[in-house]
């Protein structure tokens, strides 16, 4: 997902307080920033919300890559609006993380020096315009699977950020499907490009949900705290079940020869992604890890004089106003 492999932090708090806290969560109450919370809850959420925010910000890069080369002015305006939304989503989430006692600069620095991660999916390149369709359709589609249940998460600011995000996210997926549908219904060359984009992005999209439940030992505590609402495999299955008919409508083939409807389970059987590739990408060895981090570092460094200059100007204005009073 946008937050992958978030290990629940151990907690060493007063057992009585912990029990009362768990009772509030079980009763469906929201935890607000000034409420007492276990240190493990706070730390896990900072990492999870931070990673989610970083994913929104880094996620602007693969699509930003195509803004200047969109095929029509209308597609360009739509893509610009979508990428601007991703920036907004990052900002909602950073603010939610900051209510837990971490500063924006600390979060940014942890992304830039690699101490915090972002979703593995954004380490794959967007090679041509068909990828803009596949990213919106598959990547945003996978993100929605996770974000919709997270609207009910126990931490108030995170839940409210998710509600805002979900309102906007459906536009993202639909515009992606619209792009790829145009290509799938276009010339044979265009249809081939659409198929190629699906071939390349299918498994990386499945990886977004994180490792298989049998290898993922971090879930129990996070699920009890309601900061993780479903297991990785549950969400992955839901995504496959939803996406396969959408691909069929387009006349495209999901690149999994063993994919088939299982009448008994009421779900599609599918092949898991190559997890060694997933762990490799997480470790920093994906096709674009270096580029993505370099782009974020450059933006931060090049923007420094603007940030400093605006703050100096604001301080000067405030001092003048103070002197005049």
């Amino acid at each position: 997902m946008y937050a992958q492999m978030i290990k629940s932090e151990a907690t060493q708090d007063d057992p009585e307080k912990l029990a009362a806290f768990q009772a509030r969560i079980d009763a469906g109450e929201k935890i607000e920033p000034k409420d007492w919370m276990p240190e493990g809850y706070r730390k896990t959420l900072i990492r999870q919300i931070g990673q989610h925010a970083h994913s929104e910000i880094v996620g602007q890069l693969p699509e930003g890559n195509w803004i200047t080369r969109a095929p029509t002015l209308e597609r360009k305006a739509i893509l610009l609006a979508k990428v601007q939304d991703e920036a907004g989503h990052g900002l909602y989430l950073y603010c939610a993380a900051e209510t837990l006692g971490v500063t924006r600069d600390e979060l940014t620095e942890m992304l830039l020096d690699g101490r915090m991660k972002y979703s593995s999916i954004f380490n794959y390149p967007t090679l041509n315009w068909a990828d803009m369709g596949a990213v919106g359709w598959l990547v945003d589609g996978a993100a929605i699977m996770n974000q919709v249940p997270l609207q009910r998460t126990s931490f108030g600011p995170y839940s409210r950020a998710m509600i805002r995000i979900c309102k906007e996210e459906s536009f993202h997926q639909r515009q992606g499907y619209d792009v790829i549908r145009k290509m799938a219904e276009g010339t044979p060359e265009q249809k081939k490009m659409a198929q190629d984009a699906l071939n390349r992005l299918w498994y990386p999209s499945l990886m977004m949900f994180g490792p298989s439940d049998k290898d993922s030992v971090h879930s129990a505590q996070s699920m009890a705290w309601k900061i993780k609402m479903n297991t990785n495999d549950e969400l992955r299955q839901k995504f496959v079940d939803q996406t396969v008919p959408q691909a069929e409508y387009l006349g495209l083939t999901v690149p999994d020869p063993d994919l088939k409807w299982n009448e008994e389970r009421g779900h599609y059987d599918y092949t898991d992604p190559d997890w060694s590739e997933f762990f490799d990408v997480i470790q920093g060895n994906g096709p674009c890890n270096t580029d993505r981090l370099a782009a974020r570092n450059k933006a931060w460094d090049d923007g420094k004089w603007v940030r400093d200059g605006m703050l100096a100007h604001a301080r000067k204005k405030a001092a003048r106003k103070h002197a005049a009073e």
Binding site: L91, C95, T103, R104, D105, R160, M310, L311, A314
Partner: peptide, 30 residues
């Protein structure tokens, strides 16, 4: 931190006749 822009709380009036409501926060120099 050092030179971080201050945090602002944002309130928006959604429609004419309604109260401003808190919608979130952001950083800005002024």
């Amino acid at each position: 931190m050092k030179n971080e822009w201050p945090l602002w709380e944002i309130f928006i009036r959604g429609q004419h006749g309604m109260s401003h409501r808190h919608v979130g926060s952001l950083h800005a120099p002024d």
